[in-house]
Simulated scan of single mutants.
Amino acid sequence: MRYRVTLACTLIGVALCLFNATGYDPHNLFLAMFSVPMWFVEVFGDIHQVNVWFMYVLTVLSWALIGYVSDRLIARTQSRSRRTA
Rank of each mutant, 00 (worst) to 15 (best):
Q78A: 13
T77G: 13
G67Q: 03
T22Q: 14
C9Y: 13
E42G: 15
Y56D: 04
L31T: 01
C9H: 11
L61A: 15
D71F: 04
C9N: 12
I66V: 13
V60I: 12
V36E: 09
V52S: 06
T6H: 05
V60W: 14
D25Y: 01
S70G: 02
L7S: 10
V52D: 06
A15M: 14
N20R: 13
G23L: 00
L65S: 11
Y68H: 11
L29A: 11
Q49D: 09
W53F: 12
V52A: 10
V50T: 05
V69T: 07
F19M: 11
F34M: 07
W53A: 09
V50R: 00
R83C: 05
M55P: 01
R80L: 10
R72K: 08
R2C: 07
R82V: 07
T10W: 04
A75L: 07
F19S: 10
Q78V: 09
S70D: 04
N51I: 00
S35M: 05
F30Q: 03
G13T: 11
T77Y: 07
L65C: 12
L11Y: 00
T59Q: 03
A32C: 06
P37S: 06
W39A: 05
L65M: 09
D46A: 03
F34K: 04
L73R: 03
A15N: 14
L31K: 04
I47L: 06
A15I: 13
T6V: 08
N20G: 14
V14A: 14
F44G: 00
W39P: 02
F30C: 05
M33C: 10
W53P: 04
Y56H: 10
S81I: 14
I12A: 11
V14K: 15
R83D: 06
A75M: 03
P26V: 01
T77S: 15
P37F: 09
L18D: 15
